[in-house]
Design a protein around this nucleic acid. Structure first.
Lengths: 217, 217
DNA sequence: CCTACCGATCGGTAGG
DNA sequence: CCTACCGATCGGTAGG
């Protein structure tokens, strides 16, 4: 998307995207509060006020940075996974791509939303609201795909989609935590294995076949 | 512990503990970097340099704050749970007390270590090392208790204690995340239900009886 | 986009 | 424990 957009955007908007590209990288590592206008301007070789002109305030910069992180997340995970058939296959694609995106360290500081969510959970305001809304949407999207799998007969009728979504979402977040803080690269294997077992336990025979097929993608 | 220690500590040490008690509360909400010496001094009605004299540097204040959070965690969770029999019963007590400690909001900003871990995972130094060490120890303690349950015949011999510890640890962290960011109080019920199912799947008949007994503690 | 500035606050120090 | 200070940096503004 970055490359594609660059061709068609006005110069002012291109510059803005360049700024946000660095901003989201800094913020993933140092936090959205640690993202200071002076530092961002310095790393880009421009003046503070020059950079500031692209945004009305620090809060607007933070909001734009969160939105940019969302765009990357959509590009890296949602759009590719949506090529897959709906139901368990697409759900597994979401989760595996999310794990790979953390493992590849798309952002310097790991999963942007995990860091920003815990940083802002005690700071009421527009930034917290936006992070919460996007996080809720992602969790709901996972639950919706589980519901779709259930309606297709891949998941047992007795399964609770919101509960299963809570669990698999937590497993990926745990992998991010263990990888980033404990430097444990096994965390991805652990998360993937746990996800497979959890979905396998809720699956019908038909669903189990989908999971088995995806073993070596 | 706070009250008990107050009686026996030297006045200088008492004052230090009062400072750290507020510090850990502020840091849980605003982060260990957001914990500034000026603010801490202001809220305590003392001068910056007066407060600074208790610590050699900002980093030493952060290290003392992390250590204080560890002491509270030990007092609130480890010591009470250690009254229980070893194995599955103690493991369930650890996890349930951990969930209650988050739900009760012992610290203003929720689980101190969850927030501090993700804040410092990209900031090398002594603070990060300490947080990582304590987090690793806690995860290992859960794994050790699962291993103990296995050796007692409560958990199947085929179960991998480190894997089970990873999963149940992740479920509690997910509950903290959903409670703090999404304001979802159901997250505790979801986490507890998932923990019970996961341990139940790995349990022997003997272990299943222990889990069933603890249903309404 | 820039220079030049504002008041506030940061971590930290000198000296008592 | 205090006052009084240091240089650096914060978010933000004026004026071009």
């Amino acid at each position: 998307m970055k490359t594609a957009l660059k061709e068609t955007l006005a110069p002012g908007e291109r510059r803005r995207q360049e700024i946000l590209s660095l901003a989201v990288d800094i913020a993933s590592a140092e936090g959205l509060e640690g993202l200071t206008i002076g530092r961002l301007a310095g790393e880009l070789g421009m003046s503070k006020s020059g950079l500031f002109g692209h945004f009305g305030s620090k809060e607007d910069l933070q909001l734009a940075t969160v939105t940019r992180a969302r765009d990357v997340f959509i590009q890296e995970i949602l759009i590719p996974a949506e090529q897959r058939s709906r139901g368990l296959e697409r759900l597994l694609s979401y989760l595996q791509r999310w794990l790979r995106y953390i493992e590849r360290s798309v952002f310097r500081g790991g999963c942007f939303f995990a860091a920003a969510g815990l940083e802002f959970d005690s700071r009421p305001g527009r930034v917290r609201s936006l992070i919460a809304e996007l996080s809720r949407n992602w969790l709901q999207l996972l639950a919706d795909e589980i519901e779709e799998a259930r309606s297709r007969g891949e998941i047992q009728a007795s399964a609770d989609p919101a509960q299963v979504a809570f669990e698999v979402h937590g497993l990926v977040q745990e992998a991010n935590w263990a990888f980033r803080l404990l430097d444990d690269p096994d965390s991805f294997r652990r998360a993937e294995s746990a996800i497979r077992n959890r979905l396998g336990a809720a699956a019908t025979d038909q669903g189990a076949a989908v999971i088995a097929e995806r073993r070596n993608p």
